[in-house]
């Protein structure tokens, strides 16, 4: 963890405490999660209590306080996806990866997350991995998709 990275991001917002949410988002963008040391540094730099920073980081679902895998699989649980079977898709991820929501596989490849609608409702059930959208998912497609990411990682 480089604290210089945190400093750079904090400076980008002139160390304004009102920019706390944006600062945390930028840190997560770079570090893939919010490391404790980074949160402590943010509190110091913005001159605000650590409790406020931790409260923000745990209130907003976009943040992870644990390191995440190389492929973060976001299963959309929006209503449109739900009525088209997103629940079964999520079950399949949990079974195939052997992890629960918010967890990461031991090999550090996959993190499983859920998201409340990504606005691609016509294509449900949708799974977003990084910037890649996977449409009309079902159990078979989940297995195929994970295999292809595993292959990609092996290359």
């Amino acid at each position: 963890m480089e604290l210089e990275m945190v400093d750079r991001i904090v400076d980008r917002y002139d160390a304004r405490s009102s920019a706390l949410l944006a600062i945390l988002q930028d840190i997560q963008q770079e570090a893939n999660y919010l490391p404790q040391a980074a949160l402590r540094q943010v509190a110091r730099r913005l001159d605000i209590p650590l409790t406020r920073v931790v409260r923000m980081a745990t209130f907003y679902a976009a943040f992870s306080l644990k390191p995440r895998g190389r492929f973060v699989c976001n299963v959309c649980l929006g209503t449109a996806c739900h009525v088209r079977g997103a629940g079964r898709v999520l079950d399949q991820f949990q079974r195939t990866l052997g992890i629960g929501v918010g967890e990461t596989t031991d090999d550090g490849l996959f993190t499983l997350q859920t998201v409340n609608c990504v606005g691609a409702c016509a294509l449900g059930p949708v799974v977003v991995v990084g910037e890649q959208y996977h449409r009309e998912m079902n159990n078979r497609k989940v297995d195929r998709m994970l295999k292809s990411y595993r292959k990609q990682a092996g290359e």
Partner: peptide
């Protein structure tokens, strides 16, 4: 432009404003 953090409740006006100010929604 302020970006949300994945919190449905921030669609509520006072929560949204708290979020812009740098607080939990």
């Amino acid at each position: 432009v302020n970006r949300g953090g994945g919190a449905f409740v921030c669609g509520e006006s006072t929560a949204l404003m708290a979020s812009i100010e740098g607080f939990p929604g």
